[in-house]
Amino acid sequence: MSDPSDVMAPMQGARSEGVVTVEALPAQGQITLRCDLSDDFRWKLGETLGFAVPEPLGATSDGDRALLWMSPDELLLLCPYDAVPTLMAQLGQVFDGWFIAIADVSDARAQFRITGGHLRDVLAKLTPVDMAPQAFVPGMVRRSRLAQVAAGYWMRDADTMQIFVFRSVAEYAFGVLTLAAGAGGEVGFHVR
């Protein structure tokens, strides 16, 4: 067995407190699936995972696993970091012979959790995504930018956003999020 202490997620343990709290998450299993999201595929994947495939801009989850809709031909499967090899093998078997790309990207992205009542206002400083409560509802996934880097947004609940960026810019992402959440940074727009 590998030494688990060898695994170091980008910015692991980083945390800042401002008008929202920014936390880097520990290593997260992540599998990219690129395929025609046909009914056949959706059914087969749902059957394999035991939960449904999300609609566009959506996410579905079951326990510690989740599926995020990334684009018309791409899904992101989240799971525990150590579960990836088994899951990859299982998916490889199920979709043997399919036109599909399954890739382990667990180490390619950094994940952050942003929590707090001013979440929408703080994120609206860094991304053009519509953060209005009626436009970005819990459970939704959007891919856009975070200041100058590409980012994905998954709204877990009304006060929690999970954000993922490429790992090389994790420090930058943490920096701009912390800056935007700095003291006196309340806008009072989405939250009054």
């Binding site: 400083k125 200041a147 100058q148 880097v149 090389s168 810019v169 994790a170």
Partner: peptide, 16 residues
């Protein structure tokens, strides 16, 4: 410029 100044002027990509 907004937040893009000083340390945050540009993303700096870092290897592990």
């Amino acid at each position: 410029a907004g937040e893009a100044r000083g340390e945050m002027f540009q993303p700096l990509r870092r290897t592990p």
